[in-house]
Write a protein that binds this DNA or RNA. Structure first.
Lengths: 168, 168
DNA sequence: CTAAATTTTCAGTATTTTTTGAAAATTCAA
DNA sequence: TTGAATTTTCAAAAAATACTGAAAATTTAG
């Protein structure tokens, strides 16, 4: 396989992958492209490579920057802005986990706390079932939250070797 | 908060949660409803509670059954089919992980294997960068794959206590 | 300051995804 | 069997989401 084709496949499947994870296709594709470029590239480079409009490119780059996955680079003597992705995959994973934990897991846990205060006779079958479900989800969610916190702080080497010990 | 309101909030936020995880809103809402019902319920119950059409209900129940999250129950003396969700949250998580691993992680790893066979001079900056990115993602992906396999087979108690040891 | 280059915004458009509802298929009691 | 009850399918409609492109805002070299 030629590099050009390999790059295209990587970008397109990373994009499809993203859509299964609540990230829009274009954002994931731009990210993929930046991941395989060793040097910073411009908006126009991205527009050309992915065949997308200026507005679309701009908005999605900004979002990638918000996530901390991409940084703006100013090259001396150049008028245009350049963009560069974080290449350390472990850092990438941690950034994504951190962001999604904040956006999704934490609000969910807060809601579950509130829902446990539901009023009514605890012996009522419906209430019992509701509280049981909510309680169990919360328990697992809290554990996941702690584990992810540890992971976010961890060095890759340390984390992987800890996992290895358990999961040989 | 009254049970009715609490149930609604739970269902609606579980639905929103699902959309961030590549599961459609309705499927997640039906799942939420079934999770908090101790007894099996019918399609019509679901349609009424969630205000959705028969076709939509039917398709999404079927999908939940495909995932192994819900089972069809035939009650003696009843003509209609009833549905019941797996209530053990640990099992639920394992079923979801198993399904998504199969649908997403495994195909991705297969693709990365293929992409590593790209032809060309390994000293070319672009090829080098491409191979490095692909290789690193593959390495992490393989580790994740192994860890998830262990998790899928594990008992909750064992798994959580193993995590506790590391992540105190 | 001026104006060209560049970035950002956003209303309108296009695309994708989800939902509906009615018809077709299936099931099952009698 | 038969036909009423129930489930399933799927084309068309609606809703949600993403994208475009041109105008506005911003930046910077001279």
């Amino acid at each position: 396989m030629k590099l050009t084709e390999a790059r295209q496949q990587f970008i397109s499947s990373w994009g499809a992958f993203g859509t299964h994870w609540g990230i829009n296709r274009t954002m994931a594709q731009i990210h993929a492209l930046l991941l395989i470029c060793s040097d910073p590239i411009t908006q126009d480079d991205i527009m050309e490579e992915l065949n997308i409009s200026r507005g679309n490119t701009n908005m999605n780059i900004r979002e990638l920057i918000n996530w901390g996955l991409v940084e703006r680079v100013i090259l001396p003597g150049e008028r245009k802005e350049f963009f560069l992705a974080e290449k350390d995959i472990w850092k990438v994973v941690k950034l994504i986990v951190k962001e999604r934990k904040k956006r999704e897991l934490e609000p969910m846990l807060k809601l579950l706390d509130k829902l446990e205060e539901v009023e009514g006779d605890k012996r009522d079958k419906n209430i019992k079932s509701f509280l049981e479900t909510v309680g169990n989800i919360k328990k697992l969610g809290k554990q996941a939250d702690k584990t992810l916190d540890t992971m976010i702080k961890a060095e890759e080497g340390w984390f992987i070797s800890s996992l290895m010990k358990i999961f040989k």
